[in-house]
């Protein structure tokens, strides 16, 4: 890699940064060029996006594996009582 191009370490930082703020055009171009040539950095970018998506996920598995599907009656009442008592 020549000095005017980002190395993998720099690209990994910039890819993460691009998830939090917008980068200047020339940096975006340099990252894109690097990603075209480097499958590992490309892989990293995809994986960071998967992590983002996964923690934002609200879906729950359909298969509960035999576990109860909801709060037990007693627990429901206990929580309701706790919420009532905490209300101002």
């Amino acid at each position: 890699m020549t000095h005017w191009m980002f190395n993998c370490k720099e690209v990994s930082r910039k890819v993460s940064l691009s998830l939090d703020t917008s980068l200047p055009l020339h940096q975006r171009v340099m990252i894109r060029m690097h990603l075209l040539m480097c499958r590992y950095c490309n892989r990293l970018r995809k994986q960071l996006l998967i992590l983002r998506e996964a923690v934002r996920l609200e879906k729950i598995p359909e298969d509960t594996g035999g576990q109860p599907e909801g709060l037990s009656g007693a627990m429901r009442e206990r929580i309701k009582k706790a919420v009532r008592e905490a209300l101002p």
């Binding site: 609200e58 729950i60 509960t64 109860p68 909801g70 709060l71 429901r76």
Partner: peptide, 9 residues
């Protein structure tokens, strides 16, 4: 309640 419980579980 039930949704949060299933999520936590």
């Amino acid at each position: 309640g039930d949704f949060l419980y299933r999520y936590a579980l």
